[in-house]
Amino acid sequence: MSGEAASMLPRLKAAINGGDMDGAKKLMVQLKILMTSFKSTPGVVAANEANVQELMIVREFYELGCLVSAQSEDIEGFERHFAVVKSCYTDYAGVLPQSEKQYELQGLNLLCLLAQSKIAEFHTELELIPVDVWENPFIKFPINLEQYLMEGSYQKVLESPGGVPSKSYSYFVRLLSGTVRDSIAESSEAAYDWMPIAQALKMLSMGSAKDLSDYVVSKQREWEVDVNANVVRFREDQKVDLEVPSQRLIVETLSYAKELERIV
């Protein structure tokens, strides 16, 4: 059984390299059926009793599955596949030789979390990767992106597609650019009173004033795109909150009274 499955893996790989996603998905279904007869699947057997050959096939299959999902822009599928792969990397690290795709996939997973702004999960995953490996290009890429995002070097994030370490990363990077554009829009809104349209286009990396107007409408931002004066005016009035927070004060004072009573 495992021989048959093993022989199908190169075909799957060829389909992925050739960009034939539909073919790849069909092959994956067949392989999944074959793999149901495996006795050693992650999570089912203990590390020391596992059949290494079967586990290797399972691992490679799910690694390829991750790549297929990443390229066919399927985040949920990617997360599902990666869950199995991760178990192979951590729980069976002692029995299996290290996969050559390990860093690529771990980096891809980090990027996936980053693109969805799951920063806490990002850091949890990052802790699983030894610090010595952080210099690996696959891992370094998402780490750098996260730092740029945190400090606000959005320009570097937008430039990052040029430095993508593998073509499988491109979908998530594109996804990330969208998130970054929103962040840029928000921070410019706060920082500027107005700016020329040309500058705004450059900052948001858009092509024409029409794109900008469309963007403003679609995100429901209160910007005024003035084509005649050639400027964008951001929302001006920032009301100073003068209201007395009575509700909060009452709650706090009552809690002091209660606590003090307990002490006395």
Partner: peptide, 26 residues
Amino acid sequence: LESVEDTRFIVAKCIQDGVIDATIDH
């Protein structure tokens, strides 16, 4: 910092996060 372009974004983000109270004049 590495470039003025970066600085612009960083300053803008700090303003948005409420770290500093300022505006950027274009």
